[in-house]
Amino acid sequence: MPKDVDPEKMSRRQQFVATYRMAKQSDRHVGLWILGAFVLGAALGFGVFWFLPGSGVIGLVIAVAGGLMLGLLLALVVFGRRAQKSAFRQMEGRPGAAGQALGMLRRGWKTDPMIAFNKQQDVVHRVVGPPGIVLVGEGNPNRLRGLLTNERRKHERVASEIPIHEVVCGNGEGEVPLPRLVKHITKLGKNVKPADLTDVLNRLKALDASRSNIPLPKGPVPTSMKGLRGQMRGR
């Protein structure tokens, strides 16, 4: 996929092709998994619909159509899951990986990547949603402790009544692995009403405006996951 192409402006077919190519890079057998899922789903669907009331040509047509629909559905499910796992494998260990993963959150969430960082490329991302404010640290846990504490204090000054959660993305003890990050955040609860989120976001804009304009740390970032996120939503 060309780097200058916005996945949001791509057609559904182009998104599927780009996502398949991305998945193929780290999952050589993704095509066989998709084909196998389609064949299995089609066989099961044909068998189920064949025994429904009906006979002759009409019964055969219904069985074939039902088999194709079930096969296609199962193939899409397998494709989506393996593409997601492949994307996480390619992102893991790269600077900004957690920020890319947070981009898969559904509507109702506001993600601001890299609101704080240091020279060692330890970064803090921010997510605002039903649980409140979630500060996601990515990098060395010891260095992140200071970054997260500093950001918590800043956010408490402008939104003291909003719950603030701290999450460290990683594979160590007490950390959340990258593939489970989005699910972990969505399970933090519902503490803020949608009507109150607008006020919270406006106050955070004032906080961000007071930050110094320091260039973001450079580093390899994986291919945008907007296309994959759209497929996860069924768009």
Rank of each mutant, 00 (worst) to 15 (best):
residue 162 I to W: 00
residue 112 D to T: 12
residue 111 T to R: 06
residue 122 D to Q: 13
residue 108 G to P: 04
residue 146 G to K: 11
residue 88 F to E: 08
residue 121 Q to A: 14
residue 102 L to N: 14
residue 89 R to N: 09
residue 150 N to D: 11
residue 97 A to L: 06
residue 145 R to E: 08
residue 150 N to S: 15
residue 158 V to Q: 03
residue 138 E to K: 05
residue 132 G to Y: 00
residue 87 A to S: 11
residue 147 L to C: 05
residue 106 R to C: 14
residue 114 M to N: 10
residue 158 V to Y: 02
residue 94 R to C: 06
residue 141 P to Y: 07
residue 141 P to W: 09
residue 119 K to G: 08
residue 133 I to F: 08
residue 133 I to D: 05
residue 153 R to K: 13
residue 91 M to F: 06
residue 145 R to Q: 11
residue 89 R to T: 02
residue 160 S to Q: 08
residue 91 M to V: 11
residue 100 Q to S: 08
residue 132 G to A: 09
residue 122 D to S: 14
residue 130 P to F: 06
residue 86 S to V: 04
residue 90 Q to K: 12
residue 104 M to H: 08
residue 106 R to H: 11
residue 97 A to Q: 11
residue 108 G to S: 02
residue 93 G to K: 11
residue 134 V to F: 11
residue 144 L to S: 01
residue 125 H to M: 05
residue 109 W to G: 00
residue 143 R to L: 14
residue 162 I to C: 03
residue 122 D to V: 10
residue 94 R to M: 14
residue 89 R to L: 13
residue 148 L to M: 09
residue 115 I to W: 00
residue 141 P to E: 10
residue 155 H to W: 11
residue 142 N to V: 07
residue 151 E to M: 06
residue 86 S to Y: 02
residue 146 G to Y: 10
residue 124 V to L: 06
residue 95 P to T: 07
residue 127 V to L: 03
residue 160 S to K: 12
residue 156 E to S: 15
residue 117 F to P: 03
residue 132 G to Q: 05
residue 98 A to W: 11
residue 108 G to M: 06
residue 148 L to S: 06
residue 134 V to H: 01
residue 125 H to G: 00
residue 109 W to R: 04
residue 137 G to K: 09
residue 119 K to T: 06
residue 108 G to K: 09
residue 120 Q to I: 09
residue 155 H to N: 14
residue 85 K to I: 14
residue 137 G to A: 02
residue 159 A to R: 00
residue 128 V to N: 02
residue 122 D to I: 01
residue 102 L to R: 04
residue 106 R to G: 08
residue 115 I to T: 10
residue 99 G to T: 10
residue 159 A to K: 00
residue 132 G to T: 03
residue 135 L to I: 00
residue 124 V to M: 04
residue 115 I to D: 01
residue 103 G to Q: 12
residue 121 Q to W: 06
residue 145 R to W: 10
residue 146 G to T: 08
residue 136 V to D: 01
